[in-house]
Design a protein around this nucleic acid. Sequence first.
DNA 1: ATGTCGATTTAC
DNA 2: TAAATCGACATC
Length: 195
Amino acid sequence: MPQNFSTPDLSQTRLGVSFFEQPAVDVAKQLLGVIMNRRLGGQILRARIIETEAYLGPKDLASHSSKGRTARTEVMFGPPGRAYVYFIYGTYDMFNVIVGVPGEAEAVLFRAAEPLDGWQADLSGPGKLARAFRITRADNASDLTGDEIYFESDPDYRPRILKTKRIGVAYAKHWQHRLLRFIDAKSPVAAKLRR
DNA sequence: ATGTCGATTTAC
DNA sequence: TAAATCGACATC
């Protein structure tokens, strides 16, 4: 039986480690429009990412890595493409991906997304996004290029990228003013995001 | 051992 | 505009 060698390889659209090896700002921007996948038992939860924030390492006073290497931030100083999940306000888990050069502790926070495939969920905020995707501290340090949580590019989708200051980082001296939050203005959900 | 405060959300 | 809620981190 002759094999069909021209069968499209769907995994080509899946984002690998090299994508996450880029600087945080690049990853944060390129993540807009990307499809996030989470395998839960038999089904897969999917959503298009529409809001992210970049955190630039120990020098960035808004980043947890500016506190140095601690039990909590340890994963930030590790290899890119891994999850950094932390608990805050006694209620929410925040989902991030480590990016850039290992040891430089850059990260991107996932802040909002549009559910796909008829999935009814409110993903407009980092706490709500993580909760809906069932992501908790148990997922900390997990590989985001594997089969549990992974990302697919959608070359046909072109986001309209809006830049603003990051949310909730007023304590971060001059870093609070940096335009490190990225929103896809094309998304209907973008209209109701916090300003 | 104790106090402060947060990469948020929701309700008043 | 403020309360909820608890763990990380700093300080005593």
